[in-house]
Each structure stands twice: as C-alpha cells, then as structure tokens.
Nucleic acid binder design. Structure first.
Lengths: 253, 253
DNA sequence: AGAAGGACCAGTGGTCCGTA
DNA sequence: AGAAGGACCAGTGGTCCGTA
C-alpha cells in the first residue's frame, strides 16, 4: 500500500523537522519535500534511497534540546524547529521564501487521516477501543512516527478551512485567489472561510455535524467550536428574520 | 410526550432516593414505584397528584448530609441512601425484601437513555456539542433531575448484562431462570452473561462494537473493556484452533 | 504586527477500594 | 461473604498565551 510513502517523504527535507542533515535542503526558496510531492503528481513518490521509512517506533535520539548549536545552514545560525508560517497561495502554487502554502496545509490533514487509519488498524488488531476521530492519541502517534510538524493546536486552528476545501473546492479556490490578490494574510483568509461554510450549512438545514459526518475526509475531525457557534447564531437570526417577514424559506444573507 | 413520566415516577418512592417523606413507602417488602411501573404496563403512568415532575434544575436543598438523623421509617433507625442490592429474578418477578430485581436493573438503562435524549435535545437547541453516548454529563443530569439512584460505576458494571437482554432476550431470560433456580448470587449471574455475548460476537465476525452500534438501545453505551477483551482473546484462540484443524469455519466452542 | 505550538486546565472515561 | 458507589487518576478535548 502507499499509505506511508507520502508521510515518509514529507518528513524529509522540510526545514523544520529535526532530521538535521536534511534540514536546510528545503528551508528557504522552495524546493523542499512538499514541492516534490506537488510536482510529482501527489502520490506514489519513491522514497529517497537510504532514508528509512519511519512508521511506528522511532528510535528517540533526544537531539532536540541541550548541547550544540553548532550546525547551521544558510548562514543564519541556529534555526528553531518551528514550522514556517503559512501564506495564502493559489491552488497549485508553491510558497516562496520561508513560508508554507495552503496546499501543504491541506496535505497535513490528509496525513493526519493516514495516521488515524494506522492507529485504527493497530487498535483493531489488538482488540482495543478504536478511535473514530483524530484524537490526542493520533497526534502522539504522528509525533512518534517522525511527523513532528503535526500538532494539535495547528490542526484544530485550520479545520474549518480544510472543511471548506473538502465541501466546496471551487469556493475554497476562489477565496484563496481573491485573498492572495488582495495581499491578505493567513489570519484574514482563515476568518473568511467561515462565511461560505455557514451559508452551506444554512442550505442544508443548519446541521453542521451532519455535514461533517457525511463527508469521508471530514468525519474524522471535530467540528470547531466557533463554526458550530456561528451556525447556531446565524440560524437563530435567520429564524427571527423569517418570522418577521413571514416566509418559511426566507434567505438570511 | 411521555419521556419524563417514567422518570418522575421512578424517582418517587424508591427507598434509596432522598425524597425523605416518601422514602419508606417502598423500602422493604415490595410495593415501591418499580412494582407500580411493572404492574401498570410500562408506560404512561400518570403522575401522583401534587408531585411536580422534576426535569432540569432541581432546587437543591442540601439535605443529604449534616444535622438530624431524626426521621426513621420501619424501626431500623436512619437508613442510608444506598440502593438495595440486586438479586437474580426471573423476568417479571418482583424482588422481595430489601432487594432489587433485574427488571428494575434493566429499567435503569432505559432511564439513562431517556436522560441522554433530554441532554441531546438541550444541546441541539443550544447549538452545542451533542453527546451520542451516556457520558458523565448525562449522569450529572440524571442526578440533578433527582435520579440519585443512577450512578456511573453501577451502570458500567452491568452494561454487558443489559446488552444480552437487548440482543437475545430469550437467552437472557433463560440464564436468569437458571441462575435463580440454582440460587446463584448476582455476581455469578453477571459473570455468566459474558459467555453468550462472546458466542454471539463469534457468530457475527467478532466485531462487538458493530454489534453494539447496530442496536438502537445499545449504541449509546460504551462497550465494556472486559467484554471487548474476552471477544478479542476468544477470537484469537478460535483462529489458532481453526488454523490447526484447517477449516476456515471451524467453531470455537 | 502575525503566527506556530508547548503546555495548561476543566471535565472525561474508567474503575478501585474504602464502606456498609 | 457480596455488593453499591464516592472518589480518584491517567489521559482527553480544547485553546491560551508565552515565544520567536
């Protein structure tokens, strides 16, 4: 199966992950693992020779803290393992400079799904409780498998953006292009992702949980609190509005 | 709707719950609320006059601890609010003495389901996360609604017994009659409930989660750890056995 | 300033063990 | 002894806020 090929690949070369000898290959100016993934057609990349596929138990080398800051890449001294910030990119566009693009962001969600599937398979094999969502356990597993660039706060932060991408890729792409053109930052784009989702929920009876549950890539993610609240608030004001105007199918926006 | 009628009713009269003035009416010798429920045909009991239906916010009176042990019922002094222990009863049989029967036990599971439904309705109304299982939140709600005789350790303890009752009532009834006849205690009966469930799982591909999920009254209960482990262990030894004997459909028992 | 993520916290699932 | 359930505990979902 090809489940791990992408994972192993995307663990390489990203400047932020702790494989020191490869770190700087992708750091700035593009050309990292993600670019390879995008250029190569999104699946079945062959692994680089000599790089072992990391799946379950990663031998822990403890190299993250302590001692030597002696390695440096492009002359900026010690680079922390924090991921490059996201910028708004169009579909297919590779982020330049020390930035990551939105295709890469969405790819992280796919990776989490693959890690979840692995955790589920292990649980089934052992006859243990089988998670249906991306839980702490899955994040822990991802980290142990070497995907240190995946963490819970980040993934939860952008879930609704990924949801829009899954549910209405056209609208998501249009929004990305518009916000890129306007030079908006990631935070503004992220905020803007709520509105089309709420509109979508409105058109489907306001049940955002049902919408997530009906989509195979989305069902594994918890509905973000704020999205749930927005849907609820909008439903109530739409109801108030329609009760004033009298029409049962009055549109809120 | 009739959702709360049973709840309100079964909150009355049971000797263990903290409505002091009614406590002793049902204490020993049968004749408590449960008997009324059984005799009355299991639904749409009318409420006793003057007894308010308790649903959400119970005015807390703090009367459980502190002060006066001055009330006493049938001459045994202060009776603690602990439920009478269960005994093995046949279907339809009312427990005599300071005991509770198994119909009453199973009725508690139905009550929990009704509390869950109430919690779900409230959550939906408020646009909040909606539990799909009987969670701590539901137990807390039950307690606030006056069903102090419902608690998590008890309900979790007997889940698999209730599961057998739901999935194969004939087998469950036969087991109850057999264990009553032999004079076995509740613990022995409880232990014995595992075996027919494991056999049932065996006949359905060993997926005990799927079996729970397929049943509308069971889907709201977490699969008990021990039941899951037994299914897993039995599956493995069945597999080993069939690989020795060579037949893919070899029966383990 | 905008953003990534370590680390905290309230409340969870699970059940032990002091109690009656 | 057999059994009910208060109360504890490890690990959860959720996200704040000290960090870069």
């Amino acid at each position: 199966d090809t489940t791990n090929a992408l994972d192993a690949l995307s663990q390489e070369g990203l400047s932020e992950e702790p494989v020191q000898q490869e770190k700087e290959a992708a750091g700035s100016g593009g050309g990292g693992a993600w670019d390879v993934v995008v250029a190569g057609g999104r699946k079945k990349q062959r692994r680089r020779k000599g790089q072992k596929k990391v799946v379950v138990e990663v031998g822990h080398e403890d190299g993250l803290e302590g001692g030597d800051d002696d390695e440096n890449g492009d002359g900026e001294g010690y680079e922390r393992q924090r991921e490059h910030p996201f910028i708004v990119t169009e579909p297919g566009e590779v982020a330049r400079g020390k930035k990551n693009g939105l295709d890469y962001l969405f790819h992280l969600y796919e990776q989490c799904r693959e890690f979840l599937i692995q955790v589920q398979n292990i649980a089934k094999e052992r006859g243990e409780k089988c998670p249906t969502k991306v839980t702490n356990q899955v994040f822990r597993y991802a980290k142990k498998a070497g995907a240190s660039y995946i963490n819970k706060p980040k993934m939860r932060h952008y879930v609704h953006c990924y949801a829009l991408h899954c549910l209405d890729e056209e609208a998501s792409n249009a929004l990305r292009r518009a916000f890129k053109e306007r030079g908006e930052n990631v935070g503004a784009w992220r905020q803007a992702c709520y509105k089309p989702l709420v509109a979508l929920a409105a058109s489907q009876g306001w049940d955002i949980d049902a919408i997530f549950n009906a989509h195979p890539r989305l069902v594994i993610w918890y509905v973000p609190t704020k999205l749930r609240q927005l849907c609820h608030a909008e439903r109530n004001s739409a109801a108030a509005c329609s009760s004033v105007s009298g029409g049962p199918d009055h549109i809120a926006f």
